[in-house]
Amino acid sequence: KYLVLALYDYQEKSPREVTMKKGDILTLLNSTNKDWWKVEVNGRQGFVPAAYVKYL
């Protein structure tokens, strides 16, 4: 498993997404889509914009 760092705040806009705050450390679950990565944060799984996170 990889960890990624939230570069920006992101507010979920659909039930498939998750909210994150700048500085959050997220567990990367799937990065096959170049635009949306599946992550786990605070016990929830969902998608965030790939451009908003970077590998640690």
Rank of each mutant, 00 (worst) to 15 (best):
D9A: 07
S14K: 08
L28P: 01
L3T: 10
E12S: 15
V48E: 00
Q11I: 14
G46Q: 02
P49S: 02
L29H: 06
D24P: 00
G43L: 05
K22C: 06
G43M: 06
Y10K: 01
A50R: 11
A51Q: 12
N30D: 15
Y8K: 14
V41M: 14
T19M: 04
T27F: 13
A50L: 02
A6I: 02
D24A: 07
N42K: 10
R16S: 15
Y55R: 14
N30P: 03
L3H: 11
K21C: 08
K13D: 07
G46R: 01
Y8H: 13
W37V: 11
K22H: 07
G46L: 04
Q45N: 08
S14C: 07
W36Q: 03
T19K: 04
L5Y: 12
Y55P: 14
T19P: 07
Y52D: 03
V4P: 01
K22T: 08
W37I: 08
L29K: 05
R44L: 08
D35S: 12
R44N: 09
T32W: 11
Q11M: 13
D24S: 07
K38P: 01
S31H: 09
Y2D: 13
V18I: 15
Y10S: 01
T32H: 12
D9S: 08
A51I: 13
Y55E: 13
L5H: 05
W37K: 02
K1W: 11
I25G: 01
Y2T: 14
W36K: 03
K21T: 10
K13G: 08
V18G: 02
D9I: 02
K38R: 10
Y52V: 05
R16F: 15
K38I: 14
V53H: 00
K13M: 13
T19V: 03
E40P: 00
L7T: 06
Y10I: 01
K21M: 11
E12N: 07
F47H: 05
Y2A: 14
Y10R: 02
L3S: 09
T19D: 05
L3Q: 11
K34I: 10
N33L: 09
G43D: 10
V18W: 05
V39L: 04
Y55D: 10
A51E: 12
W37P: 03
S31G: 11
F47D: 04
A50I: 04
R16N: 15
N30C: 10
V41Y: 12
V4T: 05
K1I: 14
E40G: 06
L56R: 05
D9N: 08
I25P: 02
N30T: 08
D9V: 02
T27N: 11
R44V: 10
K22Y: 04
Q11R: 10
E12P: 15
V39N: 00
Y52N: 08
L7W: 04
Q45M: 10
L28W: 02
N33H: 13
L3I: 10
E17I: 03
L5D: 01
K21P: 00
E40A: 08
V53R: 00
L26W: 02
F47A: 03
E12D: 05
K1T: 13
E12M: 12
L3P: 05
W36E: 04
P15Y: 08
W37T: 05
K38S: 08
E17M: 05
F47Q: 04
K21F: 11
P49E: 01
L3M: 12
F47N: 04
E17G: 13
S14T: 14
V41K: 14
G43H: 07
Y2V: 15
M20W: 02
K34L: 10
K54T: 14
T19W: 04
W37Y: 11
G46V: 03
P49I: 03
L29V: 13
E12H: 09
A50P: 05
G23D: 06
R44W: 04
Q45W: 07
E40S: 10
Y10A: 00
E12L: 07
L29C: 06
G43N: 09
T27C: 09
K22N: 04
P15G: 10
V48G: 00
K54M: 15
T27M: 14
P15L: 10
L5R: 08
L56V: 13
K1D: 11
S14F: 06
D9C: 04
G23F: 04
N33K: 06
E12W: 05
G46S: 02
G23P: 00
L3K: 12
Q11H: 13
L26P: 01
D9G: 06
L5M: 14
W36P: 00
K21N: 10
K13F: 05
W37H: 03
A50T: 06
V18T: 07
S14A: 09
K21Y: 11
K34P: 13
L5G: 04
E17Q: 12
N42A: 10
S31C: 10
P49H: 02
D24K: 03
G23M: 03
L29Q: 04
S14L: 10
D35E: 14
R44D: 05
D35A: 12
L28V: 10
I25L: 10
W36A: 02
L56F: 12
M20H: 01
D9W: 03
Q45A: 12
M20V: 10
T32F: 09
A6R: 02
L26V: 08
L56N: 06
E40H: 05
K38A: 11
L26T: 01
D35L: 13
L28Y: 02
M20E: 00
K1F: 11
K13N: 11
L7V: 09
V48M: 01
K54H: 11
L26M: 14
V53K: 00
L28T: 02
R16W: 15
D9R: 03
E40L: 09
S14P: 05
T27V: 15
V39M: 02
A6W: 03
A6E: 01
P49D: 01
K1C: 10
A6T: 03
Y2H: 15
L28F: 04
Y8S: 10
Q45T: 14
P15T: 09
G43R: 05
L26E: 01
K34W: 07
N42W: 06
P15W: 08
Y8A: 14
K21E: 07
S31M: 14
K54F: 10
T19R: 05
Q11C: 10
L56Y: 14
Q11P: 07
L29P: 00
N30L: 08
Y10V: 01
R44F: 07
D24E: 12
L29F: 04
K13R: 14
N33M: 09
K54P: 01
V18S: 02
M20P: 00
S31Q: 10
Y8Q: 14
L26S: 02
Q45I: 15
V53C: 11
K34Y: 08
L7D: 03
Q11A: 12
N42Y: 09
K21A: 11
Q11E: 14
Y52C: 09
A51M: 11
V4F: 07
G23H: 05
N42S: 11
P49V: 03
G23K: 02
W36I: 03
A51K: 15
L28M: 05
Y8V: 12
K34H: 12
K38T: 08
S31E: 11
V41A: 13
L3C: 09
V4W: 08
I25T: 07
L56A: 10
L29E: 03
K21S: 10
S14R: 09
E12R: 12
P15Q: 10
L7Y: 05
L7I: 11
Y55H: 13
D35P: 03
K13H: 09
Y10N: 01
S31L: 07
R44E: 06
Q45Y: 09
K22M: 08
R16L: 15
L29G: 02
L5I: 15
N33Y: 09
Y2C: 12
E17N: 05
I25N: 03
L7G: 03
Q11N: 14
Y2S: 12
L28G: 01
E12Y: 04
W37S: 04
L28D: 00
V39S: 00
Y55V: 15
V53G: 01
Y10P: 01
K22L: 05
Y2M: 12
N42H: 12
M20Q: 02
T27I: 15
V41G: 10
D24C: 05
V39H: 00
Q11S: 13
G46W: 02
Y10L: 01
T32M: 12
